[in-house]
Nucleic acid binder design. Structure first.
Length: 482
RNA sequence: GGCCCCAUCGUCUAACGGUUAGGACACUACCCUUUCAAGGUAGACAUACGGGUUCGAAUCCCGUUGGGGUCACCA
């Protein structure tokens, strides 16, 4: 039987890094075993749907280059891959369990449930769930009430005694007492299934062999096992991956960190860097390498190398890793075109006419390569390349004021240079400093201030070349008048 | 609170009974240098605690503590 894994995200907001994390592990494991990676959208909670969220998730996977073998958009032999479209099937499954006496109709209202919980809490009961008041109701009687139009849910009749053991691939056997299990709702009063029913039925129907999901699901796994058993289906392999945590070591959420993949994309994080970073959360390469691709992961992945403690998402390290991709992985040509596309996509171009994907742009990108970790830093660090309308920083101003002599010298002599290639200007500066008996810095900083408006910039040679003689001279002139 | 999971530098991690407990991010110096970076070198920083088992425990067992999760007609 071929290995089949899935992610089952809910379309309830921006695409979540946790979803990307799960997608990565599910994708890698499926590919490593020559199997299939499936995306199924879990939208049975009709109240929490967010417009566009489904597309957002699919877009994210495309951006990350983790294409599913089967999904709502590419389809597949088990379509539909949108859970709400399978609701009729879930209702049939629920009925099947009711008919078999493994589940029952239940008529309590949400308010009554609330009272039950409060009462159980007040008594200090160990079991704080549903009191099972309809579990023993005669099925015929129950059916009669349902037929009469009374609102009901379908609940699983879990065993009251004994234990349910979850065999987790990462943690071994995890034992739960059945007396602590709840008669979980399988079908809600709106006729839609809960996650418990829907996910198990769909996993079974879709032939999922390995359920790889976040640790938060571990404690509801005994219920899932009971559902499988009620149907008489063989269990999949359970794998509960370690937590991705936010600040303070709490579950990663909007409150504890940035969870939106869109937001990382907007910051100019490369998809391969994000994936690489996610890959080193909870897993490591056998040789300790930190820079690795999804392909590398497929080659070397094993559950044995997964560490179980949760990992705190550290943006500083992601940033560093992104910088590594910019500096060491992408070619200049690749970098330039992707950066250009990024700027276009985020409408960050300062001047659409001059900021084309041309030689100057490439020269500037090359200069910035060791100087940026994120694409979003690019414009702020290069604005003076694209416009004459730039300010002098406080420090630059100070230097300009005390260097008029050098600047006018420079203006005069620079204008006689044949060309502004780095070699020519480099020799020129050396000679000038030598002649004047001053340090190179005394020549460079005024010029830097004049040309860039700041004392922090790329090297002078390439910078002057990219700017060109005309602009450089004009800027020195402007600085002298300042 | 009940139940469940987890526990190595601040952070991500290596070590699968024997290492001066290694690497990376961040941090601090220094080197390189026309500034800023990048790069290089160095430094500081960890096995939560207490019992066992063993000739020998970060590693195995138990307990404690700590952290997290979960107890929905949400997934």
């Amino acid at each position: 039987m071929s290995t089949r894994t899935r992610i089952a995200p809910s379309p309830t907001g921006d695409p979540h890094v946790g979803t990307a994390y799960q997608a990565l592990f599910n994708y890698v494991f499926a590919h490593q075993n020559g199997g299939q990676f499936i995306v199924r959208i879990e939208d049975t909670d009709r109240n929490r749907l967010v417009e566009g969220a489904l597309e957002g998730i699919l877009d994210m996977l495309e951006w990350l280059n983790l294409p599913p073998h089967e999904s709502p958009t590419v389809g597949g032999p088990h379509a539909p891959y949108i859970q709400s479209e399978r609701a009729e099937k879930h209702r049939q499954y629920a009925q099947q369990l009711v008919d078999a006496g493994k589940a029952y109709l239940s008529f309590e209202t949400p308010e009554e449930l609330e009272e039950m919980r409060a009462a159980a809490a007040a008594r200090g009961d160990e079991y704080g769930g549903y009191d099972r008041r309809y579990r023993t109701l005669d099925p015929l009687e129950a059916q009669k009430r349902a037929d009469a139009g009374e609102s009901y849910v379908v609940r699983l009749k879990v065993p009251l005694e004994g234990e349910t053991v979850v065999q987790d691939l990462l943690r071994g056997a995890v034992t739960f007492k059945n007396s602590e299990l709840d008669d979980k709702i399988l079908l809600k009063s709106d006729g839609f299934p809960t996650y418990h029913l829907a996910a198990m039925c769909d996993d079974f129907d879709m032939g999922i062999t390995h359920v790889i999901r976040a640790e938060e699901w571990l404690v509801s796994t005994p219920i899932h096992i009971q559902i499988y058993r009620a149907f008489g289906w063989p269990e999949p392999q359970w794998i509960h991956t370690p937590w991705l945590l936010g600040d303070g070591g709490k579950k990663l959420s909007k409150r504890t960190g940035d969870v939106s993949v869109k937001s990382y994309r907007a910051k100019g994080v490369l998809p391969e860097a994000l994936l690489n970073y996610l890959g080193m959360m909870g897993w490591s390469m056998p040789d300790g390498r930190e820079l690795f691709s999804v392909q590398d992961m497929e080659e070397h992945f094993s559950w044995e190398r997964v560490s179980l403690g949760g990992s705190i998402f550290d943006f500083a390290k992601l940033k560093w890793l992104n910088g590594k991709y910019i500096r060491e992985v992408l070619s200049l040509e690749e970098l330039a075109s992707r950066l250009h596309a990024y700027l276009l996509e985020n409408s960050l171009l300062e001047n659409g006419e001059t900021l084309e994907l041309n030689t100057t742009f490439r020269q500037v990108v090359k200069m910035l390569t060791p100087r940026m970790d994120l694409f979003s830093e690019f414009m702020a660090k290069t604005h003076y390349f694209w416009s004459e309308d730039f300010e002098y920083t406080e420090k630059a101003r100070g230097v300009l004021e005390s260097s008029r002599e050098v600047l006018s010298d420079l203006l005069e002599r620079l204008s006689t240079l044949e060309n502004f290639s780095p070699e020519v200007t480099h020799d020129f500066f050396q000679a000038y400093a030598l002649e004047k008996g001053i340090k190179l810095g005394k020549v460079m900083s005024p010029l830097r201030a004049a040309v860039a408006g700041t004392l922090e910039s790329p090297e002078m040679g390439p910078m002057l070349e990219a700017l060109g003689k005309e602009k450089v001279l004009a800027r020195v002139r402007r600085a002298l008048e300042f």
